[in-house]
């Protein structure tokens, strides 16, 4: 009995349940303290649609994080894909969607190429894509209005839910039941041993960036569906939203076998519910960010996997 209690309260277990427990607590607190505003159908609906974009992008990012890389390109890459896709297709709906995904994959491939070919950490490549993408989007949108009125017809809950379920379902399958996902975790744990086990590390790293690019492209489509226009701020802060959400979801910061794809869903929900609830409390938007930062620090302090930081002597 004693031992079971001790095991339950051990740091290890705590680390695993904190994200989910935190999410449930936040939901309960907001349910009871917002005079029912939080639970209103309208609120839930907009919450889901807001969260969907980040969740789609976060799901693909898990693959990159599992092999111990960070993707910092997301926001800029989102803007870049949307703008380029608009320029290429002239805003025609279906081709626009397809090209968005193509350009998303292209951004992923550029990251992979710089990272593997140039032996540069992927987040550096990502930072460059982020700035370049943002800059391009702002330059183009300054001289051109890129309206996508047709896209608004999809701005409905069912569409977002279908996309979400398909993307998350496919990624869940790939991550847990195929070589692509399994190898990412091995690479994150020990790249040398992975190579010496006969696995082409570079190929599978590149595939992770491709998957991340696909989900990014889909996230870009959803962004355009929601705003019905491409502009300089398309996808602004997507990368920080995704990384913060994944951290809240308890993702392993060094990747590896401890990486779970559920971190994406728990983290993104946590992140947006916190945001939403605090606003419903009537907290000023600027303060919301401060509270979010404190929450973020607390969760990460408790849930981060420190096994790789331990130093003897």
């Amino acid at each position: 009995m004693n031992q079971r209690v001790r095991k339950l309260l051990s740091m290890d277990t705590l680390r695993k349940i904190i994200p989910l427990a935190g999410l449930i607590i936040v939901i309960l607190v907001f349910s009871f303290t917002t005079n029912g505003l939080f639970l209103r159908w309208n609120n839930i609906q907009s919450l889901i649609m807001q969260a969907a974009i980040t969740l789609v992008a976060a799901t693909g990012t898990v693959f990159v994080m599992a092999h111990n890389n960070l993707d910092f390109s997301l926001g800029g890459a989102c803007a870049l894909s949307a703008v380029l896709s608009y320029l290429v297709t002239g805003g025609e709906l279906i081709p626009f969607f397809i090209m968005c995904i193509v350009f998303g994959v292209m951004c992923g491939l550029i990251s992979a190429f710089i990272h593997i070919g140039g032996r540069v950490p992927a987040f550096m490549a990502g930072l460059c894509i982020m700035f370049a993408g943002r800059g391009l989007a702002q330059t183009v949108s300054a001289s051109k209005t890129m309206l996508m009125v047709g896209a608004a017809q999809f701005n409905q809950l069912w569409f977002f839910l279908v996309v979400l379920i398909v993307v998350f379902g496919a990624c869940y399958f790939l991550f847990n039941y195929t070589k692509v996902g399994k190898y990412q975790k091995l690479i994150g744990t020990n790249p040398m041993a992975t190579q010496l086990s006969g696995i082409n590390v570079n190929k599978y790293k590149t595939l992770a960036f491709v998957i991340c690019g696909v989900t990014l492209g889909i996230a870009a489509c959803l962004t355009i569906v929601r705003s019905a226009a491409v502009n300089g701020n398309t996808g602004l802060n997507l990368e920080t939203d995704v990384l913060l959400a994944l951290s809240l979801g308890g993702i392993s910061m060094q990747g590896g076998s401890a990486t779970r794809i559920r971190s994406a869903i728990i983290g993104v929900m946590f992140y947006f519910i916190l945001d939403n609830g605090l606003l419903l409390w009537g907290l000023d938007a600027d303060y919301v960010d401060i509270v979010k930062a404190i929450f973020f620090l607390l969760t990460v302090t408790i849930s981060i996997d420190r096994s790789q930081y331990s130093v003897i002597a």
């Binding site: 975790k185 020990n190 041993a193 992975t194 086990s197 590896g256 076998s257 096994s307």
Partner: peptide, 9 residues
């Protein structure tokens, strides 16, 4: 260093 994935089953 070269053959095992330590924090792995």
């Amino acid at each position: 260093k070269e053959s095992l994935f330590q924090a792995t089953s």
